[in-house]
Design a protein around this nucleic acid. Structure first.
Lengths: 160, 160
DNA sequence: GGCAAGTATCTTAGTGAGTGAGATAAGTCT
DNA sequence: AGACTTATCTCACTCACTAAGATACTTGCC
């Protein structure tokens, strides 16, 4: 007879328990991220939605309002409002789309981007502190997990 | 116009590049999660905020409106409105707090919880599909990362 | 004990972020 | 060329959320 595992949060024994622990940890991580985003936005006197837009633009580079609508889940009209707000505050710039004259390319204003990133500094230093406790190979594993999970998750892909 | 794909591709060589890739993957993962939450909420005809509440209650168990306010970032009045909505729709139940008669304990109605979880099924099956590509030890590593990152980030704590 | 201060939730009025239908303009297909 | 589609923006409206205050209970101090 197996001895009972009394510590639920410690290393799970069975693979099933391991998967459950991981799922729970992921969900908690996501819940925490949402709160964290709010906090950062608050510091910058921005709405969480605005912050989300800046993040998307920072991660994916300049993109059209339509793409932002799909990546954020906002309506087309909502995107316009957010962009107006961000543009007025000097965070982003709208420029003509080189290939489609109906369209627009939105990009982050570089100087402001630095100011935004500064607010992530404390998180990033903690992030790097966490990283120190992992070997190169372990980080590769974690990275692979995130990439796989990202691909399995809500893909923003448009069929042609 | 094609919306960008929220996933990155290459395998980094140096540790610094590895850290950068991981940071980027984490941020993309978070961005995708936010979208995913919206989609699920939409399916259930709930607001994203309501979904967030159900998640918190599912993860952390019954808690007071005040604790929900802290975990979600909403104001006290906002929590009341959300809870009214969820209670009216039959998702949660308010009951007297056993230790403080001013307070209230909010808990998920079990039968509804199942219905909510059903909407995560497709995600969970994909999740388990991803898990299959990792060994037990690798999953332990990933779990350790999430726990560490969760502790480093904004704390979501269950309060009494 | 009894008053004062603190805490938890709910109420209410007001706001403004986001929606959705429609307008405009440009690209695409036959 | 005309019809259709696509991309963004406009505008009136909605309703989710905020903030201040009300209510009810707890805690602490004299």
């Amino acid at each position: 007879m197996r001895p009972p595992n009394l510590s639920s949060e410690k290393t799970p024994a069975t693979r099933e328990a391991l998967a459950a622990s991981l799922l729970r940890a992921v969900r908690l991580f996501i819940a925490g991220s949402s709160l964290f985003g709010q906090r950062v936005a608050e510091k910058l006197a921005l709405h969480p939605t605005d912050m989300q837009f800046l993040n998307l633009l920072d991660l994916l580079g300049p993109m059209t309002p339509g793409a932002l609508a799909q990546c954020s889940g906002l309506s087309s009209g909502g995107v316009t409002v957010v962009l107006d707000r961000l543009e007025k505050a000097g965070y982003v710039r709208r420029s003509a789309h080189p290939e489609d004259r109906r369209s627009v390319l939105v990009s982050i204003v570089a100087s402001r981007q630095k100011r935004v990133n500064a607010n992530y500094e404390s998180a990033q230093s903690q992030f790097h502190w966490v990283l120190k406790t992992f070997s190169d190979q372990e980080l590769q594993t974690v990275l692979r997990f995130f990439l796989a999970a990202g691909n399995a998750g809500p893909q923003i892909q448009q069929r042609r």
